[in-house]
Computed example of a mutant assay.
Amino acid sequence: MATLALKVDVDTLRGTREGVPTLLRLLARHRLRATFLFSLGPDHTGRALKRVFRPGFLAKVRRTSVTSHYGLKTLLYGTLLPGPDIGRLAAEPMRATYRAGHEVGVHTWDHILWQDNVARKDAAWTRRQMRLAVDRFAEIFGHAPKVHGAAGWQMNDAAYLLEEELGFTLASDGRGDAPYRPVVHGRALAVPQLPTTLPTLDELIGVDGITPENVAAHLLKLSLDGRDHVYTLHAELEGGQLAPVFDALLTGWSQSGLRVGSMADYAATLDLGALPRKGVGMGTVPGRSGVLAVPVNLPPGPAGLA
């Protein structure tokens, strides 16, 4: 039986306050578990507008109705409006997620800051950002986080190493086809990567005739190919205007016989020690602007592996 892991990225204050409760209701109706990864510090979503000159960014904004999904107020945070502290203002929806039996973990401290900068920052900067997120998570939940999923699928070598140092046991930081153990600086790390394997709704809608009305059928077809998958959804989309699409997906996946659950549920079906070793790098994904964290093949032989 193939497995589908549900990974929920929660990027904004609005997504935490409004999108998360909607997703909890949908998942409860279908009696399914998911992994929720929270942004724990300031919401600076408005600063994403500086990506306007990035190839593909404007096209994505036009076809995915960013304003309607995120709201004008959210798109002003960090520019004309101060960035609210998500962890301070929306801790209760986060705790409600954990009480409902879902897995919870770290997405980031400051989503925009991480997404736009981590790939070129040093270890000290990376440590500070991850430490802020880990400490705030422990403050909210009363225990240390075990799951990490990078904002914007953006990473650097230091971040992979810090996941191990900070006590994470599972990560889904990039895109790829199957789970692997990352090799960084010649060392295979203990924290396995379970990458996102399926396209997201905002990568599909508006491309090749795909609309909100037919995207669920398209995505169901992609996911029912006999392989294990990780699907990343966003609290701001599937917990907002695209909630009917997610409801249809949950119905289709449940009826198909897929084993649907959290990242931990998926990891429990794997022999983590036997996962292939892969290097880490950056690559492109259709429908997504910029480059994202992806696995890369290592040179043949054991040279350089510790």
Rank of each mutant, 00 (worst) to 15 (best):
T232N: 13
L233P: 03
H234A: 03
H234N: 06
H234L: 03
A235F: 00
E236P: 01
E236H: 06
L237W: 06
L237E: 09
E238M: 02
G240P: 02
G240E: 03
Q241I: 11
L242K: 04
L242E: 09
L242T: 03
L242I: 06
A243Q: 01
A243M: 01
P244N: 11
V245A: 05
V245S: 05
F246G: 00
F246S: 01
D247E: 10
D247R: 09
D247C: 04
L249S: 08
L249T: 07
L249G: 07
T251L: 10
G252R: 07
G252L: 10
W253R: 02
Q255V: 01
Q255M: 05
Q255A: 15
S256A: 15
S256Q: 09
G257S: 12
G257A: 13
L258K: 06
V260L: 06
V260H: 04
G261H: 03
S262V: 15
S262Q: 15
M263C: 13
A264V: 07
A264I: 06
D265K: 14
Y266I: 08
Y266F: 15
Y266L: 14
A267T: 13
A267Q: 12
A267W: 10
A267Y: 11
A268I: 05
A268L: 04
A268Q: 10
T269K: 08
L270K: 11
L272I: 15
L272P: 08
G273E: 15
G273V: 07
L275W: 04
L275I: 06
L275V: 04
L275H: 02
